[in-house]
Amino acid sequence: MPKASSSMTSPEFTYPEGSAAFPHRGLVGIAGLAPHEIMFLLDEAQQWVELNRHAQKRRDLLSGLTIINAFFENSTRTLLSFEIAGKRLGADVVNMAVATSSVKKGETLIDTAMTLNAMRADAIAIRHGSSGAVQLIADKVDCPVINAGDGQHEHPTQALLDALTIRQAKRAFNGLRVTICGDILHSRVARSNILCLTSLGAEVRVCAPPALMPADIERMNVQVFHDFDAALRNADVVMMLRLQMERMQGQFIPSPREYRHLYGLSLERLAKAESNALVMHPGPMNRGIEIDSNVADLADRSLITTQVEMGVAIRMACLDVLTRKARGLEGWA
């Protein structure tokens, strides 16, 4: 029997039973996921949101399974989130950090992948600085691979956790106006969010100066803005992106204060959006540059810490769903 998504009843979000609900080996990107598959993962994450709010947070679903977090690029929060997600489900979680890896000694990525594979991991979460690197590894290993961010390409779990965060607050995606502002060009978060939100029916606007806007981005079904005030008009959600400091020293932007002048989210700017517009940021924030502290800390409208909370639940859902075949779950084996 097709099952309707728990919180949304629109017909395109009904999904079939068993593995047909998510017939993918891994999660390399949002590209290639059907809307009901995204919705399935969000629904699956919901139970973990509730579990995570209890004092006793441990489930033994993945007991005996080994999960490797292979992070070829520095990360604190995403790595921690994946580690906590795996541990809460009872898996043995191992982190491979770049500083101690043989990658520094010139080993090729494929050789590293083959090594990880030979250690018989049951799932691997990978972050890498090059676009496409995660796909390259996924093609070479036998276990499910989760993309924890590859270059400027995709960061699918971030988009899923953002969607879950929005769904909790807004309840419907259809017609929702989401403005994403910041360094769109270099942002995998922006790409995955554009794919995810447009797929779920939201109206996505992107806002950046021309030098930080990728070519032909409108072909991804978004509206392009350079004027932040115009991009904010009637927005229901404002998603700010981090701009790396080195890009504000004259290469792309003359100075941090000039960036703030044009693209910083202040209370006055936020007032141009819908009166109940929500504020999001994937972190880490440059407070006082792309987002003012009094906006980031708005108790009722800033969802920034909720995003972090949803991140753990989404990663638990991904680890659970992607290991069901290996665990021989009925309907998935």
């Binding site: 496409g132 590859d150 390409h153 990728p214």
Partner: peptide
């Protein structure tokens, strides 16, 4: 080359 494909793949591109 800058364009939809490079944008979707997140590859450094030039016009």
């Amino acid at each position: 080359t800058a364009g939809e494909m490079a944008t979707r793949l997140g590859l450094p591109s030039a016009p």
